[in-house]
């Protein structure tokens, strides 16, 4: 049987664009492993909670994505989100 798929909310941090994940009211974390995961049926409520709060909202473009648990780790379902979570797959040039 496939691992159960969870929902979590991700966005980019307003001030610097860094990838962040919704952890709890007003708290966004750069570590996907610290993201709050909910079952599919609770996704809409999670997104609403993540979007709440006074401006400026700390994250730009909050969106629900799919992920599975792998032990203590949280692994996004899509390659795009895997790359967002762990950075480009290619080395970049050092200064």
């Amino acid at each position: 049987m496939d691992d159960p798929t969870f929902k979590l909310v991700t966005g980019n941090r307003l001030r610097d664009g860094a990838v962040v994940y919704f952890a709890s009211a007003g708290i966004w974390t750069p570590r996907i492993d610290d993201a709050r995961l909910v079952e599919e049926k609770d996704g809409a409520a999670l997104l609403a909670e993540a979007q709440a709060g006074p401006p400026p909202h700390p994250a730009v473009g909050p969106a629900l994505i799919d992920a599975v648990r792998d032990g203590d780790r949280v692994v996004p379902a899509t390659l795009r989100e895997k790359i967002r979570a762990s950075g480009p797959t290619v080395a970049y040039r050092a200064a």
Binding site: N12, D16, G17, A18, V19, V60, R84
Partner: peptide, 17 residues
Amino acid sequence: FRSLRLMNGLYLQLHAY
């Protein structure tokens, strides 16, 4: 804000602006 930043060449991509 989006159109204001784009008018100055600032996009939001996967990892950063």
